[in-house]
Amino acid sequence: MDMSFKEKSLWVQLLGLLGVYAWYFATVLPAAAPSVMPQHVVLFAVAVGYLVAVQGAGHIVIAVFDPRDDTDERDRLIALKGAYAGSWVLAAGVFTALYAAIGTEGNFLFTHLLLASWVLSCLVEIAAQLYLYRHGT
């Protein structure tokens, strides 16, 4: 498949986010508590470390095989449309988290709804961009 550096980069981001946060939520949710515990914070820091490592390694591999990392007006338009799609998901998630904060004890649900919203909004933003690269703006 004919993909630009930017499109390959989006795939690395998508797979990295999916893999790392699927692992994080699968590990943390069974050990849920009313409030965030120190072990949750450690797991979150590990997840961020994994994400940085996976994305760094992925981008190095892409750059080795495709050193042209130019961007142009089409890339910028697609990025804007993707950000617009993701922003709706983030806004909905923030209000859902606020509702949960009012209705539940502790901060575990609130913080994890916020985190899940951010992850989901990033996934929607990236997926929208990948769709636009394939099917046109």
């Binding site: 630009s4 042209r68 130019d70 961007t71 142009d72 007006e73 089409r74 890339d75 046109g136």
Partner: peptide
Amino acid sequence: VTRQTVNA
């Protein structure tokens, strides 16, 4: 622009 943009 990029070659992919010309193609698009």
